[in-house]
């Protein structure tokens, strides 16, 4: 569904992504794992259009979307949950959700209901300012907000960042649930264990290159991955 070919991204003189090629098949969960500075977030930001690639092409369902502006890319059906949640702190939960659907001009009633069914906690806090939510609730809101654009692909940057293990488990359950309902997911994670258990397919990134590929289970049992990322 989403195809990345020979993608290179430079920040000034530094090449953060050095030519990676991978694919996200429809209705699957794909994860990119790797250490800090491996180029995971840069890859996501490039796909979202926030950073322009130096080389390479990005195709969504056969259509070239390389270098489009972020709003065009969102309207094509790719949405990103940014790292560190980035909810709009002084706006209410409901307003946050509505901004997620900014580029849509149809009725939002059903989608708000859908998000509230996925996250009953958000419904309780509908009128509360997003900045007053707990970290876990903010992450739920960030996911819900991304879903409001009715994406084909949802990209998540470190959804487990700074959350308690039990909350992380809840978030990953939700990710699986969303995926079951038909949304393709591209997940970037430091928490390799959780990510690989959830993912259909995984890619290991090291300093801007893909060094290992396999299904989630294969990578979980791979000795190198175990040593480097799982700590066992």
């Amino acid at each position: 569904m989403l195809k990345i070919d020979e993608l290179k991204v430079r920040y000034g003189g530094i090449e953060a992504v050095k030519g990676i090629t991978f694919e996200v098949p429809e209705r699957q969960i794909v994860t990119l794992i790797g250490a800090n500075g491996a180029g995971k977030s840069t890859t996501l930001r490039t796909i979202a259009g926030l950073v322009k690639p130096a080389h390479g092409r990005i195709h969504l369902q056969g259509e070239d979307i390389t270098g489009l502006s972020p709003d065009r890319i969102v309207s094509k059906g790719i949405t990103m949950v940014p790292e560190g949640r980035h909810v709009f702190p002084d706006l209410t939960v409901l307003e946050n959700l509505k901004i997620g659907a900014y580029l849509r001009h149809d009725d939002l009633e059903d989608d708000i209901k859908w998000v509230y069914d996925l996250f009953p906690r958000l419904k309780e806090r509908s009128w509360q300012a997003a900045g007053t939510l707990s970290g876990g609730e903010q992450q739920m809101l960030a996911v819900g907000r991304a879903l409001m654009s009715r994406p084909k692909i949802m990209m998540m940057d470190e959804p487990s960042l700074g959350l308690a293990p039990i909350v992380v488990k809840g978030i990953f359950d939700i990710i699986r649930e969303i995926n079951k309902q038909g949304v393709t997911i591209l997940l970037v994670e430091q928490n390799a264990n959780m990510a690989l258990k959830t993912a259909d397919r995984g890619y290991v990134l090291e300093t801007g290159r893909i060094t290992l590929t396999g299904s989630g289970q294969e990578l979980l049992t791979n000795e190198d991955v175990k040593k480097a990322y799982l700590g066992t």
């Binding site: 709003d71 309207s75 940014p82 709009f88 706006l91 307003e95 509505k98 654009s149």
Partner: peptide, 23 residues
């Protein structure tokens, strides 16, 4: 209106606003 909401989103967090598709 939804424009006003977009303005507020820019005020609160430019990164997130851009990621939500606000130009």
């Amino acid at each position: 209106s939804s424009y006003g909401r977009a303005f507020k989103a820019i005020r609160e967090d430019e990164i997130a606003a851009e990621a939500m598709g606000i130009n």
